[in-house]
Each structure stands twice: as structure tokens, then as C-alpha cells.
Nucleic acid binder design. Structure first.
Lengths: 118, 118
DNA sequence: CGGTTATATAACCATATGGTTTTATACGCG
DNA sequence: CGCGTATAAAACCATATGGTTATATAACCG
């Protein structure tokens, strides 16, 4: 249905290399060479990942001398956060269920403990 | 690097059909036929989407008569939310920048307004 | 100009994804 | 048992993804 920007954002985030690049960029701008360093992967591979991130609006690139530094653009992540928030009550509800279960278990253990300790 | 469950979760969320299925399941359990109804897509296609969601831990399936109802499992979404939260300050910072920009703009407009109203 | 550095593009390859149609399985029912 | 309903699996196809190597472009520098 709603074939949003979310498609591109989620797809871009579904790769650990790209998430690592975003994490790195959270510390400030960086060029392609610098971004590529932590990975044992060719430079063109990194360029492709950067293109994916750029298409998703997660980074923007400028030009400074022969370098093309990338900067984090977090706005799409806000959309992800907003989307996810709609489900918060569901995972919180499951925590409530877990809490209830653990509470029951503890009561049971206390009862059993009285009968046969340890 | 961290080739987490996040990979599968984000990948599963990168499809509008699957997000719509999750939205539907937020309203309660449903069988495949029921889930397929809103889409002009074959039943096996929906089954495939459900398998993706299941592998990502976003749904669980039981068996009731000849139906295999799906239930939303929101825990992985909590991980997404947690991951996203680490970037909150970045999109908030860009809002601050926008605010500052708009404030500057308003001041400028007031100044200009004094010179040549409206 | 010629060389070096930084990055992008091209061409290619293997595998994954998202869809199809057709066929099989599992269950409940008369 | 045999049929209908609900779902999965198989086989297939087109396109996308993630990687490679080799080559091209762009900017600076002597």
C-alpha cells in the first residue's frame, strides 16, 4: 500500500555495513577512503553502499578538494522511529505478560519451596 | 560488522505489503486468506511474505482447525526502536538548526516588513 | 603537462527477492 | 472415504542486491 520513503530507508538499514557507516558518520563527516578502512571490501563496494544511503536520504555529500565527504542525515530515521512507536504498546504488553508469568513462577517456587526446599 | 537479527528485521520491514500485514495483525490474529484479501496478489505470495515475517520473528503462527492464524510478535520492533533512538539527537539537532533558520528568517521578514510591508 | 589521490562508473557474476502458476498437504465434514 | 477449504511447496521467471576487477573522471600538486 503505502510505498513510502520507508521502503528505501528500511532497505538501506538492512545491511550491517551500511549501519556501521551511519554509526561512523554519527561521529562526524568522513570521506569514502576513511569509511572504507574498517571493512575488508573494495572501494567501489563502499561507493555503492553510499549510493544506497544517499538515495534513502540518510547521507548527503559535498565536495571538498578531491574528497567527497559524507554527512549523516538523520531525518529518515525519525520516520522509522515514528513508525515503530505505533507498535510500542505491543512489545510493552508482551513484557507485562512476561512479568505476570515470572510473578506466577515465583509464587509457585515459594509454595514448592515450603514443601521441598532447594 | 554486527550482522544481527536487525538485518532480518529491517529487511522484513522494507516491504509495504509486509508492513501492511503487521498493521493488520496489530488488530488481532488473522489467517492467510484474511490477510491476503486487501492485496491483489496470489495466496502463495502472501504465504511467502508471512514466511519472511516469521523468520524475522515478527509473527508467530499457531494451528486452529485448517487455519494457521498469525499473531504479531513485536519484540524485534523494540530492537529497531532502540537502535533508532541512538540517532535521535541527530534529527533533533537538525530541527534545532531548522528552528534557528526559521527564527532568523522571521526576524529578517520583520525587518523587511518595516521597510516594505507585505 | 604529468602524476598522484579520491571517487565513480562499467561490466560482470552469484545469489536473493518478489511475483507467478501448478501441485501437494492437512484438516474437518457429510 | 471423498470433497472442500486453508495453506504450503515446487518450479519458474524477472529484476534487485552485493560483491568483484578494471577503467574513467576530477581535482590538486610539482
Amino acid at each position: 500500500m503505502t510505498a513510502n520513503r520507508l521502503d528505501q530507508t528500511f532497505a538501506a538499514l538492512a545491511d550491517p555495513t551500511r549501519r556501521a557507516i551511519l554509526a561512523r558518520l554519527a561521529g562526524g563527516e568522513a570521506g569514502v577512503m576513511e569509511l572504507a578502512k574498517p571493512f575488508r571490501m573494495s572501494q567501489p563496494a563502499i561507493s555503492k553502499h553510499l549510493k544506497v544511503l544517499e538515495r534513502a536520504g540518510l547521507i548527503v555529500r559535498s565536495r571538498r578538494a578531491q574528497s567527497r565527504p559524507c554527512r549523516l542525515e538523520a531525518r529518515p530515521l525519525r520516520e522509522v522511529a515514528d513508525w515503530t512507536e505505533r507498535y510500542r504498546r505491543y512489545w510493552e504488553r508482551s513484557f507485562e505478560r512476561l512479568d505476570a508469568y515470572l510473578a506466577r513462577l515465583q509464587r509457585k517456587e515459594r509454595r514448592d519451596g515450603r514443601k521441598s526446599p532447594r
